[in-house]
Amino acid sequence: MAAQKGKDLLVKIADGAGFVTVAGLRSRQLRFNAETVDVTHAESAGRWRELLGGTGVKRAAVSGSGIFRDEASDALMRQVFFDGAVRDFQVVVPDFGTVEGAFQITALEFAGNHNGEVTYDLALESAGPLAFTAA
Results as ranks from 00 to 15, higher is better:
Ser126Gly: 14
Gly101Val: 00
Ser126Pro: 06
Thr106Lys: 12
Phe19Lys: 02
Ile13Ser: 02
Lys5Gly: 09
Phe132Asn: 07
Arg28Gln: 09
Ala34Val: 13
Val37Arg: 12
Asp74Cys: 07
Ala131Asp: 08
Arg59Trp: 00
Gly6Gln: 03
Arg49Cys: 12
Ala127Pro: 04
Ala60Val: 07
Ala107Asn: 13
Val11Gly: 00
Glu71Val: 12
Gln104Glu: 08
Arg49Ala: 15
Val20Met: 07
Glu117Ala: 14
Glu125Lys: 10
Glu100Pro: 04
Glu109Met: 02
Tyr120Val: 05
Gly97Ser: 11
Ser63Asp: 09
Gln90Thr: 10
Leu130Ala: 07
Thr133Trp: 00
Gly116Glu: 11
Ala45Asp: 11
Phe96Pro: 00
Asp88Ala: 09
Gly101Ile: 01
Glu109Gln: 12
Ser126Leu: 02
Leu130Tyr: 10
Trp48Met: 07
Phe82Ile: 09
Leu25Asn: 02
Gly24Met: 01
Leu51Thr: 04
Ala17Arg: 09
Thr119Val: 11
Val39Tyr: 11
Asp95Asn: 13
Thr106Cys: 08
Val91Arg: 01
Ala2Tyr: 10
Gly16Arg: 08
Glu125Val: 04
Asp38Arg: 08
Trp48Ile: 03
Gly54Ile: 14
Phe89Glu: 00
Gly6Met: 04
Arg47His: 14
Ser63Phe: 05
Thr55Phe: 03
Gly84Phe: 02
Gln104Met: 10
Ala3Gln: 14
Leu30Pro: 04
Asp88Tyr: 06
Ser63Lys: 06
Phe110His: 15
Gly128Ala: 00
